[in-house]
Design a protein around this nucleic acid. Structure first.
Lengths: 368, 368
DNA sequence: CCAACAAATGAGATCGGTCTCATATATCAC
DNA sequence: GTGATATATGAGACCGATCTCATTTGTTGG
């Protein structure tokens, strides 16, 4: 019964054109219209032209949902990230989007705020939306059962970004932060520093703290551990006196820095595990009259544009941020296409020497 | 005919559980299983328990694609943005994601690099994916037919973010950048500055240029225009001598700044329309021995964390970045729910006075 | 002129939930 | 006992594109 379905002309609120509308207008079947539009199978030039004209006239857009239903592919990748407004993550995501787009994949971005429950929800939602794969920045080192999708039937490939999870057999793309931290501390030591502070960014703590949070993320732990080993190797007893774990918010970072820099004797150098820690540290140094690169040496992880025009330009540990995202996406695409194998890629970092690390002369070492 | 479909136990490569698998395991019909899982209609406690147990055992996840097919809603919003790694956009997107998530919407992020063709593709893809709405940062002021979806049947609500488009009857959320620029120039003038440079960020130019690109974005034009009006109002003949349009990349921004600061006499103050322009400007100032806040005054748009710990702390035009994204999403959700009306929201900005603007004494005004 | 084959098109199943409508069973009133 | 009502469940249509398989039409050779 033709009970007033669409296809009639003129009523304002008509629905979007479907394939069948195009087919009817071109006087062909859906199958033929599909062939003409999809450019496959056998269609005469004239038929194709008729169909294309009809599609044009009706402003037809294929319904990807329906297509995905049949094909089983959504051409959509889920990205689960701690904080997209963080410059490291936004740059990585830019790389992910670019790489995915060149293979016609789109990106669904979910933000967890490093909250485990939010991460579980995110994974569930992405599974329900039937994404073809996921890039995840895991918020926990110990709770990861929601990332183990393989048991009980095939599921969706995942690649971890920025953070490794021990015991999880999932491909990951990280940087060698342990080595980076150790190298930074070695550099401090080589420049004569012996009192070295370490500000570790983590969301697993309230405000800031001197002891390691229970569920600290792999990256943060590697950076802390690398620093401690660097100290030990230099014959300096690793002390927690100038070690702080802190959330990233400006006030927390400042408070953490303050407790280090108010200490007597104060450290002559600080390693900050991200931009936020460094900014907190600089803020406090400014406030109590310490000049970076003279009274206080500083190295930070990551290399945002401003640090090279800072006074003084800041020495940093540069990570291949864009490459990290791109590689994660490449591994994921390979796994989606069945070409991939498990792989824990760990990219190298590089110290960019600028002017925030002072070389102490022997006398100064004593004086400080 | 039961031709070996799934449901049989034990073969490793079985597909994901469907509703019908759950129903069979619980010995009920699909309809009943749907009622039990969807928590609607009438189901006895026992039946519900059976179904939930079956779903649990099979690790069942609803297929949102299928659900969306019937419901006509995807609970997905498309976001089309120039550059997600830009801190302004990534903060706005964070707000968009947060706001959307609290209404159970997810975000599909596409990046255009401010390329019109990429933007058209992005819109097409989002339409095909049947998003329920879009937030778009339009890359062009003059080409916008791809954003006019209403003719020829109902389509999808769009809200413009950050950039207004004249002649487009689409809700938008922007800041009053004309007023902001004018106020910044006024402030310079009040501090005794008369030679004021203006660095306008735009992707519509190759490298940098002194004349206005053909298809400059609304925001950039407003900022330029506001600056010019500010000058005129102060009785200063607006000159293009110290006006530069430049792409955001560090080297382009530097090159643009160089041509301004190498001029004789050089301007004593510069208004930078974003972080990238400011960084380019600072870099050149450092190189040729100009100290910000003494030899060269500087105001920039936006207020990333580092500028307040810079030496000197930088005076900025602060925009409510997070609020911008949130409001855009709120307007969009309202339109999706049929409660919205057309609305061009323009939020106020605020000058944050720090120490990068020098007050010139009369003699200095002459001397400079 | 008819068989054999190629070219072009159509009919209908399918993907997996959701929802309407019909049916079956239980409960109650008179 | 019969009809009215509430409760619980099932059958089947539907969303829109794709793809297999069958059918029709056209072409060529003997």
């Amino acid at each position: 019964m033709d009970d007033g379905k669409s296809g009639e002309i003129g009523d304002g609120a008509r629905k979007r054109a479907r394939l069948i509308d195009v087919a009817r207008r071109a006087n062909v079947s859906r199958a033929t219209a599909a062939r003409a539009l999809g450019n496959y199978g056998l269609v005469t030039k004239e038929t194709r032209a008729k169909v294309l004209a009809a599609a044009e006239a009706l402003n037809y857009r294929v319904n990807e949902l329906a297509r995905s239903m049949r094909s089983g592919r959504t051409l959509t990748i889920g990205v689960v990230v701690a904080d997209i407004s963080n410059s490291f993550f936004s740059t990585s995501i830019r790389a992910i989007i670019d790489t995915a787009a060149s293979s016609d994949y789109q990106i669904l971005v979910l933000n967890t705020g490093d909250d485990l429950e939010a991460e579980r929800d995110a994974i569930r939602v992405l599974l329900e939306k039937r994404v073809d794969g996921m890039v995840v920045v895991p918020s926990s080192r110990s709770h990861f059962s929601h990332l183990q999708l393989e048991d009980g039937g095939p599921s969706v490939p995942i690649v971890l970004l920025d953070r490794y999870v021990e015991g999880l057999k999932i491909s990951s793309v990280t940087t060698d932060d342990f080595a980076a931290s150790r190298e930074a501390v070695r550099h401090f030591v080589a420049c004569g520093h012996r009192r070295i502070g370490l500000m570790v960014a983590t969301a697993a703590v309230n405000g800031h703290s001197t002891k390691e949070p229970a569920d600290i993320v792999w990256t943060a732990q590697a950076r802390m551990h690398g620093g401690m080993v660097g100290l030990a190797e230099a014959g300096i007893t690793p002390t927690h006196k100038w070690l702080r774990y802190s959330r990233g918010e400006f006030e927390h970072a400042r408070a953490a820095a303050m407790t280090i820099l108010k200490d007597e004797p104060r450290p002559t150098a600080i390693l900050a595990t991200n931009e936020e820690m460094a900014i907190g540290c600089i803020s406090v140094a400014n406030e109590i009259g310490l000049t970076i690169g003279r009274d206080l040496s500083l190295i930070l992880f990551d290399d945002p544009p401003w640090v090279s025009v800072f006074t003084p330009p800041l020495t940093v540990i540069r990570r291949p941020t864009y490459d990290l995202g791109r590689l994660a996406m490449q591994l994921l695409l390979a796994e989606i296409n069945g070409e991939g194998t498990y792989q824990a890629a760990m990219l190298r970092t590089e110290i960019v020497h600028r002017q925030s690390v002072l070389t102490l002369r022997a006398t100064e070492v004593d004086r400080h």
